[in-house]
């Protein structure tokens, strides 16, 4: 296969979709994996076959992967560490008398 052929097949690849499944009514959709499909309708149909063969879901979301934007793992310290020293955001931070009820 020459370079041209490789480029041709690469560009012909169906887009990648991220799949989210609601496992039952009342719960939120959860990411389960990804798959390739030509369009959103096919992505839902394929997701049904690939990710819900054993009643894993009652609802499917599909999002084309290129539309997902993610935080950078390298920024984790700057983003999440500041929450560490704000213990006063948790109810257990406060020392209140034992006789206090319903709080």
């Amino acid at each position: 296969m020459d370079q041209y052929e490789i480029n041709k097949t690469a560009s012909a690849e169906w887009p990648l979709w991220e799949i989210f499944i609601r496992s039952k009514q009342g719960l939120d959709h959860k990411h389960v994996g990804s798959l390739h499909a030509a369009d959103e309708q096919m992505a839902i149909e394929n997701a049904r076959d690939v990710y819900t063969r054993r009643m894993e879901g009652v609802s499917i979301w599909v999002v084309e992967s290129k539309f997902i934007h993610a935080s950078n793992p390298g920024d984790a310290a700057a983003l999440y560490d500041p929450a560490n020293d704000k213990a006063y955001r948790h109810p257990t931070f406060y020392n209140l008398p034992d006789e206090l009820k319903h709080m």
């Binding site: 097949t9 690469a10 690849e13 994996g33 798959l35 690939v50 063969r53």
Partner: peptide
């Protein structure tokens, strides 16, 4: 056999997160 197709697809998509395309794997 349908499960096996599904297992292949789970795994291909896991491999793709490492930066290889599906077509490249088929190749």
């Amino acid at each position: 056999v349908q499960d096996e197709a599904g297992h292949g697809l789970y795994l291909y998509s896991a491999a793709e997160t490492l930066g290889i395309s599906r077509d490249e794997m088929y190749n």
